[in-house]
Nucleic acid binder design. Sequence first.
DNA 1: CTGTTAGCGCTTTCAT
DNA 2: ATGAAAGCGCTAACAG
Lengths: 363, 363
Amino acid sequence: MGQEKNPAPESGPAAAGARGRPLARPRGSRLVDIAEEVGVHVSTVSRVLNGDPAQSIRPEIYERILNTARERGYRPNALARALKQRRTGALAFVIPLLRNPIWVRLQRGALQRASERGYVVMVMEEPGDQPQPPGSYRYLVEESRADGLLLATSLRIPAHAGGVPEVPHVYVNRRGPDRGNDVVMDEPAAIRLFLDHAARLGHRSVALIDGPRAVDTVHRRQSAARRICTQRGMRLTVLHAEATEEGGWEATARMLRRGPVPTACAVGSLNQLFGVMAALRASGLSVPGDMSVVSMDEDECLPFLDVPVSSVTMPLAELGRAAVDALIARIERKPAGDVMVREPMSLIIRQSVSGPPQRAESP
Amino acid sequence: MGQEKNPAPESGPAAAGARGRPLARPRGSRLVDIAEEVGVHVSTVSRVLNGDPAQSIRPEIYERILNTARERGYRPNALARALKQRRTGALAFVIPLLRNPIWVRLQRGALQRASERGYVVMVMEEPGDQPQPPGSYRYLVEESRADGLLLATSLRIPAHAGGVPEVPHVYVNRRGPDRGNDVVMDEPAAIRLFLDHAARLGHRSVALIDGPRAVDTVHRRQSAARRICTQRGMRLTVLHAEATEEGGWEATARMLRRGPVPTACAVGSLNQLFGVMAALRASGLSVPGDMSVVSMDEDECLPFLDVPVSSVTMPLAELGRAAVDALIARIERKPAGDVMVREPMSLIIRQSVSGPPQRAESP
DNA sequence: CTGTTAGCGCTTTCAT
DNA sequence: ATGAAAGCGCTAACAG
């Protein structure tokens, strides 16, 4: 019905620029089409379809509206609704680099929870290797592409101070420069799980091989480790390196070179873990005979390695879900503060941990 | 400036439902605000800011408009623009399960390319373990949340026939039920890379351990392998299993139990690879002494395993980029067909491959 | 109970 | 070279 006619095919010099060509008209219909078919006003249809509780509707047309909407496969235009209501129903999730499996789990939790709460998620990956300051993503909200920002990119560096004023946002797995918007896990408890276990087995000198200092998660793990080790009178060596296999290898080499060599170490990321295990192997050190190893990332591959590696499981999916809830609270201007996700967390014992090697000082 | 007043605080029974509360007004301004400040009509501002080539503008106002827009940090409202132009500037990417690292690389390529072309990407992960038919995502376009669909979920099962009529979409790393919308890699060439190398080293009986049959990628690899092995007179065993560590372990056990045991095998996914290596180790078979192993997924961890594993690198980021280009072509109604991404692909030799073990039948 | 009216912020003919 | 006006599809305040 209604034949399309192009007003002037190929007339004029630069006519018909390909850019803004309208899309195919969605085959479902508009509110007004349903209204027309049923013979009521569009606003009536809107009310019925939105279940407006204000007034009751004559049951007969109520049914008719619902039926024709269903028959014609009516889909509300999210754009028009969003324009009117000033909310897009979308969240933007900014992730540093997708390689580390923790982001995958975190992303999964966030996607699920967002979907449960009626939001879609746009994922942005930090482009290139230069981490942008968190404020550089506010345009997403200012342009009404998203209602709020999930930020997993902020670093402990001056360039990232300033935060994201006036735009709903939370920092995920990081503490941001502006307070009160953090959703993090209990890193001190995680590192304590490792240290308690090591201490119980008799280790007195331990290491933490982790990512760069500027990453807040690393910073928190490291300070907790220092504090706990001081309390317990344990020796602690902290080694920072890139969160890659090479980084793990290089940090391990540094640790062995530097001596005295610790007897147990925790490794901050799965990627580093591969490098650590390889470096120990290459140095002729056995795991756990000469060195006990615990991964701070749990992963399904760990039980299948040549030496199955113990790990601390962190509640990553829960973190993602909590971050979405926290962000939505801010979008709805509900009172909200920092969130710490504690559960579930546990130490999974595999074969990479034992007591320290017997040395001269042993009885 | 303009004090907000609530018309009737807490009046009426169910007043002030929290749901549709409007968001903070974006602090940048609207087109009309700029127009007002400069003293011109809103349509003039629109033309200038969009670089409308139709007519020239008085240079003086042109400058004034540009300046005030910059000063006030003007951001166009993507919603309003999209509503008018009937294009959202968003793509939806539907991924089966984020665990397998190939999706991470693919997603990265897609995100980058989309951003280059002025689109944002919404990522949807297939919920639960029940793969939805591809058509179940068309609502995203029908509701004007996205202009098109990147589908990585379609399976070779009857429930998924039917495709996604009338909605711009491409299948990524899969062939879909409707033809002409596929963006895939050259799986036959990949598997040939493995088979050529194995044949050259003298292997006569090889295996392919891969995911479930219903996955199109698996199906293509498997048929190519059968064809090539027939040509070459090689023995081929194909084992399907879940694309997990357990799946790899279980398939390997099946292969060893079944005999005669092949002397080389390719493994379809990184997750399976860990299971395969563990199962071989547990059976007392050495790699590559008793069994040569090649991973069909390249990953940075492979060189760091106890036996560094050879692999075929696939052009995953390029696949993601090509898929975005292909989808945008469909959105813009440009002529387009299936796409095969061939480059770059290569066999990376590490230590998990050698000649077959010397047996009785050797001279 | 339901229709009228007035926009949300932007683009886009069509007139000047 | 610029302004006026219409309208994308929907919601919501206000009348009847």
